[in-house]
Design a protein around this nucleic acid. Structure first.
Lengths: 181, 181
DNA sequence: GTTGCCATGTAAGGTGTTACATGATTTA
DNA sequence: TAAATCATGTAACACCTTACATGGCAAC
């Protein structure tokens, strides 16, 4: 459950309510959870039960009461241990590759359209990603090193997308589906 | 449920038993399922119920009886429709990025070790991938175009890994964690 | 004689998503 | 008047993984 550590990480930055973290998740690509309530709220209950976070109720006028969470020393230590633990290589699950594997049954025109639509999706994703970066170049920035790390994490997504586009170009060449129609 | 279409795809190649497909999944990186019985067997039951596959019992000496599945016309059409359907961009879920996001709390030595271990994992993955390719350069190969597609799908994984290594190099540079210790 | 392959399947549990319920408040 | 936002949470369901159960056969 990496979500647990993503939450601890956010709280190592500053206190947040569940709702605020939910929003951060849904806007970030590195903290890649969709930001759904059904994952965040139960996770917070678990973390509090384990003594890794504490919560404080915040009353604000007529709004429903919010719970603001912060990190305990045990939580801080748990996070530190996890960040130093053995990293794993992500496996890429690309339904598109499965699609391509059986795409020889399609005629030239349909295959070309498939490649076109995938390229379009990739470029759309790049635009969205750039917009997210433009709107939120933040992060904790507690040190120059941390600022650099967050910039690199943001870049990562763009690099993968560019890699994918280059590969798609190769597919076009090898199958005679070049851009010039 | 893309697994359903991966199965239909395999059966469009030639008939297979559930056990054989299970093994193919566990060995392939493009057909990225772990090859566990709990997914494959129930999926086959569902496909038969929908009339997309038919099964034939194969008796072979004293071994337990195997069920060999093949594609119906309806199954072939379902597969064709799916291969032509709108492709989606895979989202990369990298716990390592989450780890890096909070890694500024680590001292230089521990951070360097974290990067080293990630690079080691990446290189191990490349070796495994190459071994898989060496041992099984196959695929249906019903046409030159299909052979080309399968080669490109196989290359895809290696390209992503190389991209990841290049990016890791950038991280090293930017954080002063160059290879020269 | 213990491990591993053939071949089917079940059990249990973690992870993830969308959609809904509540109820007041601001915005169009 | 309809919608979006604030803020919590539940329900239902899809997906994925490891581990186990059965039972004969082959290899070391």
């Amino acid at each position: 459950m990496a979500l647990k550590y993503a939450i601890l990480g956010l709280l190592s930055w500053r206190p947040f309510s569940g709702y605020e973290m939910k929003k951060l998740f849904s806007e970030s690509t590195a903290l890649y959870w969709s930001g759904n309530s059904n994952q965040v709220y139960p996770a917070l209950v678990g973390l509090r039960k384990d003594g890794l976070v504490v919560s404080e109720v915040r009353q604000q006028g007529n709004y429903p009461p919010g719970k603001v969470y912060s990190l305990t020393d045990a939580g801080r230590e748990e996070l530190r241990e996890w960040t130093a633990s053995d990293p794993t290589v992500p496996q890429i699950r690309s339904p598109f590759l499965t699609q391509l594997a059986w795409a020889d049954q399609l005629d030239d025109e349909t295959l070309r359209s498939l490649l076109d639509r995938y390229e379009h999706e990739l470029r759309m994703r790049m635009l969205i990603q750039r917009e997210l970066v433009r709107r939120e170049p933040e992060g904790p920035a507690r040190s120059p090193r941390e600022t650099a790390l967050w910039a690199l994490i943001t870049e990562h997504d763009a690099e993968i997308l560019e890699c994918e586009l280059r590969w798609l170009g190769k597919v076009r060449e090898a199958t005679g589906m070049g851009v010039a129609s």
